[in-house]
């Protein structure tokens, strides 16, 4: 992290706090999280179950609102109360991979990958199709672009989800246990797809994982406990 100051910051958060639950079950989940994600760098978050990893990821992905603290994506601050801004920033800059793949079952692999592109509306149908099939080839699914999710294995579905998260060339890729329910071989394959693409295309990648082997392969490991990073 010595050369950190020269690298481009894709996402930054300062002193994030988040409570979850109501009344007596209200929990102080995140207790002041600070983080910088650089382009071209793959970071891993590890930590015990329930320490707040997913919560942090949803906040960084602007899928939820923080109670205090700020999030800056590509130099633009995303205030917690500006719903419209969140959606736009998400569409422009952020790709998400969830623990479960969450593909739309009615759409083929290629169509699922095209959904974010269609929303952004910057490409023609042809360009979108080309990009979708190249993204799917990158994750080793070049032959299966027209299959429905139900006709793919769990690992394959997860790889489609990765291809989809990269569709709009986001500057930040957030992955919450992307290999959580895959076997060793598939885990590795998915992980490699993620990191390779990130390296090639200069994205900032943040992966939450319980797999120490995978974490070791990342450029940086962030350890979390009780809603804070520990050194």
């Amino acid at each position: 992290m010595s050369s950190g100051d020269e690298r481009e910051i894709a996402l930054e958060c300062r002193d994030l706090h988040k409570h979850l639950g109501e009344g007596e079950t209200r929990v102080h989940v995140l207790r002041g999280v600070n983080l910088k994600l650089y382009r071209g760098e793959v970071s891993a978050i590890v930590g015990p179950s329930g320490c707040g990893k997913s919560t942090l990821l949803y906040l960084l992905g602007l899928l939820d609102r923080q109670d205090s603290g700020s999030i800056i994506v590509q130099g633009e601050e995303a205030p917690p109360d500006k719903e419209g801004d969140h959606t736009r920033i998400r569409g422009d800059h952020i790709g998400f991979v969830f623990q479960f793949h969450f593909l739309l079952p009615e759409f083929s692999a290629a169509e699922n990958v095209m959904l974010p592109m269609r929303k952004l509306g910057r490409m023609s149908q042809e360009e979108m199709e080309k990009r979708a099939s190249s993204l799917l080839s990158d994750v080793g699914l070049g032959e299966k672009t027209h299959r429905l999710p139900s006709q793919l294995s769990g690992g394959e579905q997860q790889r489609v989800a990765i291809a989809r998260s990269l569709a709009n060339m986001p500057s930040v890729l957030l992955a919450d246990e992307p290999t959580g329910n895959l076997d060793v071989k598939n885990s590795l394959m998915v992980f490699e797809s993620l990191t390779r693409l990130a390296k090639e295309k200069g994205q900032a990648v943040l992966i939450v994982t319980h797999n120490p082997d995978l974490a070791e392969k990342c450029d940086r490991i962030l350890r979390m406990q009780d809603g804070q990073f520990i050194d």
Binding site: L63, L104, L115
Partner: peptide, 16 residues
């Protein structure tokens, strides 16, 4: 609901 959440995470707005 999951699909809706996913669409939202991809940049689809409430209006969409």
């Amino acid at each position: 609901t999951r699909e809706i959440a996913i669409l939202r995470s991809m940049g689809y707005t409430r209006n969409d």
